[in-house]
Every structure is written in C-alpha cells, then in structure tokens.
Design a protein around this nucleic acid. Structure first.
Lengths: 349, 349
DNA sequence: CCATTTTGCGTTAACGTTAACACTACAAAA
DNA sequence: TTTTGTAGTGTTAACGTTAACGCAAAATGG
C-alpha cells in the first residue's frame, strides 16, 4: 500500500508533463495553458496533494510558521492571548509553535535557537525581561519579531522594534488612584519579576498616583513577586507581617491578586472589608461574582491580533518595520475594593 | 554583513574538508578521526552552527515537532495540560505546534493537513468528537497520534490507537454518588457536547450511581452544554425553569460548573445552601476558597507526560504502538456541595 | 609478508520544492 | 521573407541536509 503523500513529481508523471508545469499549475504561475492547468489541478485534487512545506521552506526561506514565546500558558492572561494569536495567525495562513520559558532567559534562548532552526518566519515575544541579550542578538540579525505587552528599554537598538503594549504606567496610576479615592493611604504593592518592563512601569504609575494625591509613598510597602499566583500569597503575608500593614493591595496582575485574596482568607482578613485588592489584566476569572476582582482591563483581543498582524506584515515585507502601538487601559470596578459597599465612599478630586 | 546562518558546507570550507566529514563530526558518526572531529566541532561552536531542520526533515522525514490539537486553550483544563505537554516535549527534544479547533471538525481537519504538510512527527489529540473521520483517515495512513482524554468508540479500527484517559465513568459515578450521599435526589446534569466521548462516559457513570442507590434517573434533568463557561449558565437557567428543578448540579467540567455558580448567583440561589454544585477536572481555580468547587480530580500532569512520551516513543519506533492507559479519578470535596456545612450529613451506604 | 579488514576521508545522489534559463512553434511585425 | 516576440513547455540546478558508495592508506591477522 502506497501511503506516501503525492509529490509534484508524482502528479507530473500522471499528467505526462514536467514537474515544472505542475508547479506552474499549482501555484498560479503564468506560462501555462488553461487546459493543462485545469487537468493538473484535477489530478492534484484527486490525489489530495498537499505541498511539502519543508522542501518549499528550504528554497523560499518561509515556512508559514510563527513562534510564540510566553512565560507560562497556565497564567490565564497568556492563554487568553494565545487563543487570539493562534486564531489570527491561522486566518492569515500561519501556524504557531508554542514555547514557554518560565521566565528563564536560557530557556528562551534555547527556544529561539530551535525556532530558527525550524525556520519560523518570525516570533512574538510576550512580557518578560527588560534587558534581554537574546533580543539584541535577534535584532542584530534582523530576524523579524514583535514584542507584545513587553518593552525593551534596556537596549537602545530595540526601541525600533515593533511593540504592542498598553500604557502600563497609566494602568498603575488608575489602580492606585482608585484605592486612594476610596480612602486608602497605606497601599501595598505586589510587584512582578523585577526585570520585567511591565513591573517597572506599573509601579511608576502607582508612584505618580501617590504623588498626584499628595501622599507619601512608602517603599517598604512594595514586595517582590513573580507574576505567579503563589507569589501573591507570599507577598501578602510579608506585607501583613510588617509593623504597619497596608489596608489595600495593588497586585501587578490578576493571577497574583487571586493569590492575595487566597492568603487574605487564610489570614482571616475579609475582602474588601479588611483589605481592598486590585489587580491588573482582567482575566476571565476576575469577573466571576465569587472572585469579583477590581482590576485594570486591557484589550487582549485587539492587542493579540495587532501583534500577529504586524509580525505577518513584517515577514511578508509589507512595510511596518517598527513603531509602538500603545493601547489604553481602563479601570474595571468590581467588589474587591468595596467600592460598592456602604461605609466606603469615593473621595472628590 | 553576512547574516546567513552557517551551513555544514560553510564549516567544511573553513575546515578544509568535505561536508560529509563535517556531518560525521557533528552527528557523532564513526569513520572520522578524533582530531578532525574536535577541530570541526570547534569551528561549529565558534560559528554557532545550528542544523537546518527543514533540510534534515526532507531526508529523514522527522522534524522533532509534534502537533497538539485542542478545542480551546482558554479552558484552563487544556492550558494546564498544554503546559505539561510543552514541557515534556521540550525535554524530549520536541517542539509543539498548537492548534485550536473550537470543537469544529473542519478546523481540525485543516489543522491536520497543515501539520502533515509541515512534517510534524506526530499529533496529540485532546477531547472532542467520538466519531471522527479525520482520525480514521490518519489511522489508515498509519500516521502516529495519541488520544488524550478522548476516546474513539465510534470507529472500530481506532481501538488500537494509544489512548491516555481517566476513567470518566468512574468519575461521573463518584460525582453523583457524592451528591446522593449528602442527600440529593434531584440532580441536574450539565452535559458537554454530545459528540464527545467524555460526555457520554461521565453521564453513564452518573446513571450507574443513580441505579446503584436505587434512585430514579430523570432524563429531563440532563441539559446540553458545550464545555464552555456560558453553557453552564444557560444550562442552569434551563434546569431551574422546569416544573421541579434540581437541588444539585453535576457539571461535566469545572469550566461549566463555574458558569453554573455564576448563574446561581444571578438567580439568587446560594451555593451550597440552595444548590449543590460539583464539577470535573479540578482546574486550578476550582481550589480557590472563593470558588471552592467540589470536583473530580485527575492527574493532569501524569496524563500529559504519559501521552507525550507514548507519542515520542511511537515516533521514534520504540514499541508501544497501541494500548490504553487509564488513570483513576478521585473526588475532591470542597464547599460547593455543602458537605462541610452543618445541616448536611453524609448518608451511610 | 601478503590478504583482509578497518579507518578516514571524499564523491555523488537523493529529499520535494522553486527558479533560472533554454527551446520550440507559431503569430505578428518589419 | 526574415525578424522579433511570446505562449507553452522542458531541463537543470539550486536549497542544506543525509546516506550510499568508493577508494586510498593504515592496521590487523594468520
């Protein structure tokens, strides 16, 4: 039984023409008569011909495959992003190779090498380190990639890389402003990994909010996390152990915010009565009534689409070699800050 | 500036040997002297040589790439699975192309064709349709694939396909048994998509529990869902609209169970006081105190690993061409059924 | 010490495409 | 009629590997 998939040459043999003629028929190239084309396409259909992307890729150096590098797909923020990226990529004719790094630059590097070896046309990098030698190298090689929800301030050259992001600083500002306006002054911050641009910018925004409202910003109220759920727990514990603990928490993403709420429960703290919590990202679970997390929303769908489209454009040589697309975040008020409870009211500004 | 990645021939030129010699050096083949090998490896390292997987794949028909077909990565159950699959695949030297189908057999088919065109070595299919012509065809072509958390009872041939699953029937039994033992007799079921083997088996288990405890099983208490969160909402609404609504719900996965809890809240029903809810899968969020969903746990990590390893073994020709690996589910009791509340107590059996 | 094997290379041809270029026949232009 | 153009086709060589085979020189063995 012949299980081998048919090749151009197989079709050529059947049609009694040269493989080049078949190629012309299949790829809508000129210099072939209507009749032969039709005949060949008929045979190809019958045999269910599918081009061999490997062989093609070897020559045209394109594989219709993109890489997606994320930290961990377990974080719902990334799985939601991955979903729209896969979908838009597919609609544009591309497949997606998924690579998780666990925030490890060495694994990232490994992924990059493998992806290049497999001839991917471009890579989407999502949030991680600000300073990343891997990216600098890629940039030097003029390998196409875009940064999604991730900045690269560390490296001058990289400012020219296409970046799709939200205004994290504004997001941080909005989050803390909300807490201040409902009456909090001691606000703890659960940071993300400190090498991440996202962390830096959101904290920067938080500081601006403090300043704007004439409040003192206490550095000791920042505790280091890593964007994963457990670090929210640890972070809260640390903060509550201090001599004058915060009355509100700004967790730099929802995943950690949920950890905060978990630990609050363990510590016997009620949310929002004893502790207000605000997150960032508006993952699907944040909206559930029994989570009901006040958070900062961002247009994940639009951002994922945008990043994918930009990358595909680069790959296909359709302009847009650089530029920053910045989206605007918005505050989504739910119950975790008690905004809707009596006893709290919004300060006039 | 030469940005092109170095090839075997480039190295050969520098080393002053033939490309075959370089090949032998790089791939630990015999028939080469220790010194030349060392010299060549030195050059290769210096040039940061990375083999071109496309060219290699063209000949050896292996690409060190696997396909992972899932319905949607947004469902945390699948993102948790994807995480471990990516990780084990990477550790075994494989990359993963991710394909989401949205439960659409045509999209699945499209994915399969593309994956084959890209020369993936094998594919992991996760839960979807029982009867799937795509799989029958793959089987006929002897293309390597494994079924993860998915059965293919529809097609006789496919019983020989490696399958990694949990005992869904037992899981369904455990879930309903629990509800019965804490006193419920009218138990609504939110089914998954009806073409799914998972749905059928879990319902089968539920029915057995009814029978085992001498209870009448009311078919009208099954409502059709699709494993997505919103269908949990709709399902509950439908069930509660009936003339004699259930006092407990068995949602066939956690994602829908959360939808059920959402809708219960909207309908003014307290969980677990007015409505007990049990799910299936034990996704991470189920464990959070403010969700606290009683559910059926399965060894996702082990199953993902197992499926990946089996597939890699098949691909690499290391036996294990068929066989079913069945894992045992376990009941995880949290608060959504009120087991821990006074007023409820466990019936003796 | 000669026959045989082994070692250390090189040559050449695949793999399934794409692409440069060559050729023929026939039509249009000169 | 000769030239020029071009539609339709074929030949051949890439792409970067793997792999079959060939062939000296060195090593082994009886």
């Amino acid at each position: 039984m012949e299980n081998k998939r048919p090749t151009i040459k197989d079709i050529a043999k059947i049609a009694g023409v040269s493989h080049t003629t078949v190629y012309r028929a299949l790829n809508n190239k000129p210099r072939i008569s209507k009749e032969t084309r039709k005949r060949i396409l008929g045979i190809a259909n019958r045999l269910k011909y599918q081009p061999n992307v490997l062989a093609r890729g070897l020559i045209i150096k394109k594989t219709k495959t993109l890489g997606l590098i994320i930290t961990t797909i377990r974080n719902p923020f990334y799985s939601e992003l991955a979903q729209v990226i896969e979908e838009t990529a597919r609609n544009l004719g591309y497949s997606l190779i998924l690579g998780c790094t666990n925030y490890d630059l060495n694994i990232e590097r490994e992924h990059i090498n493998i992806l290049k070896g497999k001839g991917v046309d471009g890579i989407i990098f999502t949030s991680a380190h600000v300073k990343d030698p891997n990216l600098e190298e890629l940039k030097k090689e003029e390998f196409p990639f875009v940064l999604l929800n991730r900045r690269c301030t560390g490296c001058s050259e990289l400012s020219k890389i296409p970046q799709v992001l939200i205004d994290n600083e504004m997001g941080g500002f909005l989050a803390v402003e909300h807490l201040i306006r409902i009456g909090h002054t001691r606000i703890g911050i659960i940071a993300g990994s400190e090498e991440s641009s996202v962390t830096l910018e959101r904290i920067e925004g938080a500081k601006k909010a403090f300043k704007h409202y004439g409040l003192f910003f206490d550095d000791s109220l920042i505790t280091k996390g890593n964007f994963l759920m457990p670090s929210g727990k640890i972070g809260l514990k640390d903060l509550m152990d201090s001599s004058s603990p915060p009355t509100a928490i700004f967790a730099l993403n929802d995943y950690m915010a949920i950890g905060v709420m978990e630990e609050a429960h363990n510590l016997g703290l009620r949310v929002p009565e004893d502790l207000a919590v605000v997150g960032f990202n508006n993952i699907e679970f944040a909206s559930f009534y029994n989570v009901s997390l006040t958070t900062i929303g961002q247009k994940k769908k639009e951002m994922g689409e945008e990043a994918t489209k930009i990358l595909v454009n680069m790959v296909e040589g359709k302009t847009e070699k650089s530029g920053i697309k910045k989206f605007t975040p918005n505050l989504i008020i739910r119950n975790s800050c008690g905004y809707s409870l009596k006893g709290y009211k919004l300060k006039k500004i």
